[in-house]
């Protein structure tokens, strides 16, 4: 399960990542695991993080960048508090996931890979969440964990997003 991205980096100090590097230093083939843990901690892979992993493991920054950009899981930019993962698998496509995407676009004014101005939502389209019988589907990663929503309609997706936005406004 995903951590809550609570890590902080200050003046080049990577307090939460240091033990990870220590654990995997010298363990061959661990780069992807290290990157996954770094992203769990910080929410994304920054240039500083790449350089820090490089200095800790001896792997070149170019290679780390190469691996981080090869896999869809890794993000090089920070994300919003809620990550909306909209499935674009075949079953979802056939069941009009494009319309769900349009509804999210029009409600949050963000498209794939973008984050809303208030920093609350990031939209990512993902290849397949494997809940094909409930298409169209999206998964929202929240600070508490993941929630999956199936059989979406434009109205339902708007309700789900506005409920979250409402809750956040109430919390402020």
């Amino acid at each position: 399960m995903q951590a809550a991205h609570t890590g902080t980096r200050e003046h080049g100090v990577f307090a939460e990542l240091a033990p990870v590097i220590a654990q995997y230093r010298g363990v061959r083939g661990s780069l992807i695991t290290i990157l996954q843990k770094a992203q769990d901690i910080y929410g994304y892979i920054s240039e500083d993080t790449i350089n820090y992993i490089a200095s800790g493991t001896g792997i070149t920054p170019a290679k780390i960048y190469g691996v981080a950009t090869f896999y869809t899981q890794f993000r090089l930019k920070p994300i919003g508090k809620y990550l909306v993962m909209l499935c674009k698998g075949t079953a979802c496509h056939v069941n009009s996931s494009d319309e769900i995407r349009a509804a999210i676009n029009s409600y949050l004014h963000i498209d794939d890979g973008e984050t809303s101005e208030d920093g609350l939502f990031t939209l990512n389209t993902v290849s397949c969440l494997g809940c094909c019988s409930l298409a169209p589907v999206m998964m929202i990663q929240t600070p508490e964990g993941e929630d999956t929503y199936g059989s979406l309609t434009r109205e339902r997706v708007r309700d789900i997003l506005s409920d979250i936005a409402e809750k956040e406004r109430g919390a402020k």
Partner: peptide, 11 residues
């Protein structure tokens, strides 16, 4: 890794 979109047998 069940990468085929539209497949969830392995899951």
């Amino acid at each position: 890794d069940e990468g085929d979109p539209g497949a969830f047998m392995d899951r």
